[in-house]
């Protein structure tokens, strides 16, 4: 600040101020990623059944959040907001590669490449999820893997509370049909 009188006022000060803002923003954003990144990646994995893709989807989600961080950081719940962005990224991805939906829907006879020596159970739940409608899957992941309330899930997905309850019941029913009664009841 002290040397600005000798320099043309304005640009130098501006760029320094801007740099400071960026530093603060990056710090705050990095703290958020440290807190939420792993959970986001795991939810992305439950949505897409592939750890590499999950990593890409998570990074893309975080990039979008970073691009709007000045607005995002003031929102009521950054966590819930990040889920909303993630699910939109997943839905977009599904729509663009609708071919891969068919692959996902196929009965897998090979063990998942990413999970070496995975117990049978692990493959089964994720595969069963992959056969659900993508929005039903999102409801289950947000509701049961992330433990959000029905109301929060509704807000994240832009659905009504009754639609979330309906999708949840329907999806659990389908999981039960695929995985057997004791999956839910034991």
């Amino acid at each position: 600040m002290t040397d600005t009188s000798t320099v043309a006022p304005g640009p130098a000060v501006w760029s320094r101020a801007r740099r400071r803002t960026k530093e603060a923003r990056d710090q705050e954003f990095t703290a958020f990623v440290e807190a939420a990144g792993t959970r986001l990646r795991r939810s992305a994995y439950l949505m897409c059944r592939d750890w590499h893709l999950a990593q890409d989807l998570t990074q893309h989600t975080l990039a979008k959040m970073y691009a709007s961080w000045d607005r995002v950081r003031t929102s009521a719940s950054v966590e819930a907001y990040s889920r909303r962005v993630l699910m939109n990224v997943v839905f977009d991805q599904q729509r663009r590669h609708s071919g891969s939906e068919i692959v996902l829907a196929d009965l897998p006879d090979r063990p998942d490449a990413g999970t070496t020596g995975a117990p049978e159970l692990r493959v089964t739940l994720v595969d069963a999820l992959a056969r659900l409608d993508v929005r039903d899957r999102a409801v289950l992941v947000l509701r049961h893997a992330e433990d959000h309330s029905v109301e929060t899930v509704a807000a994240i997905l832009g659905l009504s509370v009754s639609a979330v309850k309906m999708r949840n019941a329907r999806a659990l029913e389908r999981l039960r049909a695929q995985l057997g009664e004791d999956f839910l009841n034991r």
Binding site: D26, F29, T30, V33, E34, G37, T38, R41, R42, Y45, L46, W51, Q55, T58, Q59, L62, D112, G114, T115, T116, A118, L121, R122, L125, V126, A145
Partner: peptide, 14 residues
């Protein structure tokens, strides 16, 4: 179901 998480350093992700 997510126990196979290969993990990734959050710093790099950020």
């Amino acid at each position: 179901a997510t126990a196979g998480d290969p993990g990734a350093p959050p710093g790099e992700l950020a």
